[in-house]
Design a protein around this nucleic acid. Structure first.
Length: 914
RNA sequence: GGGCGAGUGGCGGAAUUGGCAGACGCGCAGGAUUCAGGUUCCUGUGAGGUAACACUCGUGAGGGUUCAAGUCCCUCCUCGCCCACCA
């Protein structure tokens, strides 16, 4: 049976588009809802993960629309980026072609999902009409002093032939491609995101998941302390410390090998050794450094610096446990109270000077210490702050730190200071397929921005891609050669902008994508901003989502919202959040993983030890039989669960157990069995990609949408299960049956009618709150329950025709956001007015939804002993009486004294017996 | 090493303020329909126990608070994610 999903879905997709059903227009008389789902990278085709991310967002936008909001739900493409360029090199396709062909393909796929996208607002970040404004934003930032060119140690990828931002490097590798990255000193373009570090730490007024906020907070990494100056013959050495109170215990200093003062401090005797160490450190990539053991190495420079608190000459060492990229690249070492310094001191025979006396114990003796002491106590041997107590608090909240900072500032030896882990955002890339940077290098050596009238600097199309991967812009003379504002020959900047810059403002461009004089239309912005709901993957926690917040704050400071704010105030709207944050509410979906494979068949030989089989040998694959033969279900450490025909058997591997895996020749290990159970990310190379287009052909878009929303906890995701989709298909087949049935009243029963109506109104309430709260799975479950009740009613005919009609209409309306096509078709077939997607969300009548009688649980000492039907409005006294009247309860309570009775009508009564 | 989150049937997952654990679905089993397979329909489905009830056990492990704990507190284990020599 079933319904003709292919015909219905296509028909309605075309009809909706022809009618402009989803076009959103400013209407100040109606409440607005601006819903955005992260725009798509045109990777080629949408995989099931896109559906998983996007269709629930679509369902929510549809729900809000039915609730009476004027909803804007646009879509665009994040079209610049390296893959297009790689394809150009490998397959000889121009990035333009590669990108736009994929966008066209993906547009069709998005249509096939039945999304309520307002396509009239589509943006493509590689269109000159879009990147004109990306360039313009850069120019504005430059003029405002937020964008600057500077030399710094940056992440360079030789294989990708470009630099990368800090946020894009994970474990010394590019986060997207896994290509290794090395540190290089280079002159690059930056955004001064660190100016906004403190402001970015505040999440006031936004409803974001705590883990994302935590990750951003950790990424920004604010620490409070002091900047202290140690004088040396080679110049002042600045150090940042969170523990200035331990300055009197600073017995040596350590500089990063890359520190600029290293050469000047190095004595002639030490020079050879220092040079060798610096050279060795430079040769090692970040990756290699991390792979090495934590053994601390370092060498003495031969130079000394002066500890400002006591004038002591402290030896200056270099070691690679001090990173040039954090703080000032130099530290004061307090071995007695810092574990890393302690280890280094012990290894190198350096002095250890305790300055904290632990609470309730004797003074520490350096030679007896086995590790550094980091606990609370009293400062000792610390000059003016001796005797001050110290606790575990950070910054000025710790009395010893507060006292030291005061002393340092009074004596001009240091200042209170805050240090951040966050570094400025490196935005230039040595790539072709990105937005050009509108900068000209003048004939006189200066810099100037491209005039507004000349924006955008257009990316030339006639370029040749070389196997080296080097950007063709670097050698494209017609692009490079230009003239400056004096009419003199000049050279264009040939780096392009990080694609994360394109995605840092795209939701503004939806608000006037055709506007030519500004990046967005202030009137539109005043109405729609800020974004009410933003959905997407949590992998952008510290990339896109941090940059987006920074962008809004910078735009505010550059006055780019002035007009918008004026219009908002005219209409009596509070602009505060528009000026502060891009997205009021953020929700991150989880990830759909590849389908779980059935475990391999294993044959285990061994001896029984009570309940488990101690394995002598485990054979995987092939068709051997053993003491136990069955499917491997799970493995934790050395313990496996094996499903045999007789049941689940626990198998434990011994250290000398032999493991043979047919697919892996040679010696094997129990640990390798995990590979045979792994649930993996979907990827083409693993061959476990679920293609949504095939699913749509087989089951229909509505079924795929319903299944995706039903089968997972949306925030968590999980492995795909190709069998489970059948349940969603059966559900929609039933909906079709219910929606097209000719209902015949049989023997109508008042109670049955009331029960169905009660179910309907309870479902209205449940589905509404679940869709509001992004709880798709329980919303669908509630609709399935309604379906079950309606099928029963259809069979028996015991409800009134009016109740039946109400049930069918409600079912269709409640399901419309989730399965838009089938509900629209049935709505129309049943003579519904207009589109179901423009209909109003049904309102639950609490009087109808209310249960008349409920099952009250009666417990004895907290254990359920009886259940009785009582009126829903039963009083506590009556509930108690009813409970005690129960024969079964009397049976349970006759052994002891009834101490008390706790009545929670109408849910439960608990009889407490001694 | 640090931070955050999570552990519930064969599986995905439900479970307002602590108050009937396992909603809904998948799978599985039995039955009906069918020449047969599939589809569809009905019934059952945490474990033990029983003819059937009763009853006992049961939300990673152990302890605690409470009349009552998946939920709160403590200790531990495992898994996931993020950061990681961060001064």
């Amino acid at each position: 049976m079933g319904y003709d999903h292919a015909a219905i879905e296509q028909k309605w997709q075309q009809a909706w588009e022809a009618d402009g059903l989803y076009r959103a227009e400013v209407d100040w008389d109606r409440p607005k809802h601006y819903a955005v789902t992260m725009f798509a990278y045109p990777s080629g085709d949408l995989h099931i993960g896109h559906w998983y991310a996007m269709t629930p967002s679509d369902a929510r936008a549809r729900y809000m629309r039915m609730k009476g909001y004027n909803v804007l739900f646009p879509m665009g493409f994040d079209a610049f980026g390296l893959p297009a360029e790689n394809a150009a090199v490998q397959n000889n396709v121009h990035p333009w072609e590669w990108t736009y062909r994929r966008i066209e393909f993906m547009r069709n796929q998005l249509r096939s999902m039945g999304m309520m996208i307002d396509w009239s607002r589509e943006v493509v970040s590689s269109d000159p009409s879009y990147y004109k404004w990306t360039e313009w934003f850069f120019k504005k930032m430059y003029e405002a002093g937020i964008a600057y060119r500077g030399e710094a140690l940056v992440n360079w990828s030789e294989t990708l032939q470009t630099v990368l931002a800090n946020e894009q490097v994970i474990d010394g590798k590019d986060e997207r491609t896994g290509q290794p990255v090395e540190q290089r000193m280079m002159e690059q373009w930056f955004f001064a995101i660190t100016k906004y570090a403190d402001e970015l730490l505040s999440y006031d007024g936004i409803d974001w998941p705590d883990p994302i906020k935590t990750m951003q907070t950790n990424w920004i990494g604010r620490s409070e302390g002091a900047m202290v100056t140690f004088a040396s013959p080679a110049g002042d050495i600045e150090v940042f410390t969170t523990r200035p109170d331990t300055l009197w215990g600073a017995t040596f200093m350590v500089l990063a090998p890359e520190h600029p003062l290293v050469a000047g401090l190095t004595s002639d005797e030490q020079r050879a050794e220092v040079d060798a160490y610096v050279a060795a450190a430079a040769r090692r990539s970040e990756l290699e450094r991390m792979e090495e053991s934590r053994e601390k190495t370092g060498v003495f420079t031969g130079g000394y610096a002066t500890n400002p608190v006591n004038g002591a000459a402290v030896p200056v060492w270099i070691a690679d446990y001090v990173l040039i990229s954090y703080g000032t690249g130099a530290i004061m070492a307090v071995p007695a109270h810092d574990q890393r310094d302690f280890e280094f001191a012990r290894q190198s025979g350096l002095e250890i000077a305790p300055v904290i006396q632990p609470e309730g114990s004797d003074k520490l003796v350096a030679d007896e210490m086995e590790e550094s002491y980091v606990g609370p106590g009293t400062m000792v041997d610390s000059g003016p702050i001796s005797g001050v107590s110290t606790n575990m608090e950070k910054g000025r909240k710790n009395p010893s730190i507060a006292a030291t900072i005061d002393w340092l500032e009074e004596n001009g030896a240091g200042v209170e200071s805050v240090n951040y882990r966050l570094r400025d955002w490196l935005i230039s890339r040595q790539r072709y397929w990105g937005s050009p940077i509108p900068i000209i290098y003048r004939h006189d050596g200066g810099l100037e921005t491209v005039a507004d009238d000349d924006l955008p600097v257009v990316l030339p199309r006639d370029v040749e891609f070389l196997p080296s991967g080097r950007s063709p812009l670097k050698t494209h003379e017609p692009f490079l050669q230009t003239i400056d504002s004096d009419g003199q020959p000049a050279i264009r900047e040939s780096d392009t902008l990080d694609t994360f810059m394109c995605s840092s403002w795209y939701w503004f461009r939806y608000l006037g994508p055709q506007v030519e004089l500004a990046p967005f239309d202030p009137e539109e912005a005043a109405y729609w901003l800020p974004v009410d709901t933003y959905t997407g993957g949590s992998e952008h926690a510290v990339l896109h989502l941090l940059y987006a917040r920074f962008f809004v704050k910078a735009m505010r400071d550059m006055g780019l919202f002035d007009e918008t704010v004026a219009i908002m105030e005219e209409h009596g709207r509070d602009p505060e959040m528009v000026l502060r944050e891009p997205f009021l509410q953020l929700r991150n979906q989880g990830q759909i993983l590849g389908e779980e494979r059935a475990g391999d068949i294993v044959a285990v030989d061994g001896e029984w030890d009570g309940e488990r089989l101690l394995a002598d040998s485990i054979k995987v694959g092939g068709d051997q039989a053993g003491t136990v033969t069955g499917e491997l279900m799970s493995r934790k450490e050395r313990v496996m669960r094996v499903a045999t025909e007789a049941g689940v058997v626990i198998v434990e591997a011994k250290p000398d157990t032999t493991v043979e895996i047919a697919a892996i020749p040679g010696e094997n290990d129990v640990n390798q069995l995990n590979h045979h159970l792994e649930i993996e990310r979907m990827s083409k190379s693993r061959g476990n990609v679920v293609n949504p287009d095939d699913l749509v052909v087989e089951h229909g878009a509505d079924t795929v949408r319903t299944y995706l929303m039903f089968a997972f906890d949306w925030l968590k995701g999980g492995p795909w299960d190709s069998r489970g989709i059948a349940g969603a298909g059966r559900f929609l087949d039933d909906v079709w049956r219910l929606g097209t049935a000719d209902y015949d009243e049989g023997e109508v029963e008042a109670a049955a009618t009331a029960a169905l109506r009660r179910r309907v109104h309870q479902t209205i309430r449940k589905v509404g709150s679940d869709l509001h709260d992004f709880k798709w799975n329980t919303a669908v479950a509630a609709l399935m329950t309604l379906r079950n009740d309606m099928l029963a009613a259809l069979r028996s005919g015991d409800v009134t025709a009016a109740a039946w009609t109400e049930a069918v209409d409600s079912l269709l309306l409640l399901l419309a956001p989730i399965a838009p096509h089938i509900t629209e078709e049935l709505w129309t077939l049943r003579g519904g007015a207009g589109s179901i997607h423009s209909a109003s969300w049904p309102v639950a009548d609490d009087a109808i939804a209310r249960e008349e009688t409920v099952t009250m649980v009666i417990q004895v000492n907290g254990k359920v002993r009886d259940r009785i039907e009582v009126a829903a409005d039963i009083t506590a006294a009556d509930a108690e009486a009813a409970a005690l009247a129960s024969a079964r309860i009397a049976e349970w309570t006759k052994q002891g004294q009834i101490r008390k009775v706790i009545a929670r009508p109408p849910k439960l009564v608990n009889v407490v017996v001694d």
